[in-house]
């Protein structure tokens, strides 16, 4: 029975028919997706923190409003993604518990600090840029609710990316001091950004199965290469330089070659030892715990109101 269902399931995937919440699916497919979508949702929520850090210090009113709206969009993305994940059988509160206990992960990039205003440019340009590379193929991922959430997310992300690039452009055309801020931000965000695509393909244990189920459509290394190729040209327009002495055009491959990634750093940050892991998690836990009385009061009030309405109806 199970084998037959699984064959039918794979057949649907192969025919590009979306899997919907009520459809039969292998337990491992459900778990893989739940892990991936909740991790993605957590990344949006934790990702609000490094940028939120600069809202009160934005350099002018136009930038302040744009940054506020951007961070708010991330909260919105978190909402769609938590909703998509909930269709796989876990509540948002349960997902929060997993985040807060450290069981669930989020994108490691958000464990780096935002030290100057230029980081708002670099994050939009590089981090959102890398996220888009990863996310555009997810608009066609095999699980329906995830694919639909990603269509909305991607539209907004590409807007954020342009906004970030425009910050970099303004800085790089500005005073010497501003240009130095832009270069410094690029230096700090470059390597963590290209790490965002995950380990090399020969070291990525879940990739093959995810490709077969069409959760993923391109390998980590393919996406990373695409990102590097696109970003080099954008960096030239800015008049900045990428901090990689091995970066050069490879005529034969038709791609840029780039230096070896420091995977030791990547795995240290994943393991919780990045510069801001503890602060980011603490900020989320604090928000949740300090908000407990608010959520409890809202529930209590809703119950009281329901009871009052019921009593009034009965009295009438």
């Amino acid at each position: 029975m199970e084998i037959k269902l699984e064959a039918l399931f794979q057949d649907k995937i192969d025919q590009e028919i979306k899997i919907e919440p009520r459809d039969w699916m292998p337990e491992k497919y459900r778990k893989t997706l739940l892990r991936q979508i909740s991790q993605h949702a957590h990344s949006e929520i934790v990702g609000m923190l490094p940028e939120g850090n600069w809202i009160t210090r934005a350099p002018n009113l136009r930038r302040k409003v744009a940054l506020l709206a951007k961070v708010q969009d991330e909260a919105g993305h978190g909402l769609y993604l938590y909703s998509a994940a909930e269709t796989l059988g876990m509540s948002r509160d349960e997902m929060f518990e997993e985040l807060h206990s450290g069981k669930a992960k989020y994108s490691s990039i958000f464990n780096y600090p935002t030290l100057t205003w230029a980081d708002m440019g670099a994050i939009g340009w590089l981090v959102d840029g890398a996220a888009i590379m990863n996310q555009v193929p997810l608009c066609r991922t095999s699980y329906g609710p995830y694919a639909r959430a990603m269509v909305r997310v991607c539209k907004e992300e590409s807007f954020h990316q342009r906004q970030g690039y425009e910050i970099m452009l303004t800085l790089s055309k500005g005073t010497e001091a501003q240009k130095a801020l832009a270069q410094d931000a690029l230096n700090r965000w470059w390597w963590p950004s290209i790490m965002m695509f995950g380990p090399n393909d020969d070291n990525s244990p879940n990739s093959a199965q995810s490709m077969k189920w069409k959760i993923k459509r391109f390998s980590n290394d393919e996406l990373r290469q695409k990102f590097v190729d696109v970003t080099v040209a954008q960096t030239e327009i800015l008049g900045l330089s990428i901090p990689d002495k091995d970066l050069k055009w490879n005529e034969e491959r038709g791609h840029y070659d780039f230096g070896v990634i420091d995977w030791e750093e990547f795995f240290q940050v994943v393991a919780g030892n990045g510069p801001c892991n503890k602060q980011r998690l603490k900020a989320r836990v604090d928000a949740w715990e300090n908000g407990a009385w608010v959520r409890e009061a809202a529930t209590a009030y809703a119950e009281k109101r329901e009871l009052r309405t019921k009593n009034q109806t009965e009295a009438a």
Partner: peptide, 17 residues
């Protein structure tokens, strides 16, 4: 704006923003 990212519920974080 200091609340952005720290609200008690995601929906209210969005509303206050």
């Amino acid at each position: 704006a200091e609340w952005c990212g720290h609200g008690p519920v995601l929906e209210q974080d969005i509303a206050l923003t």
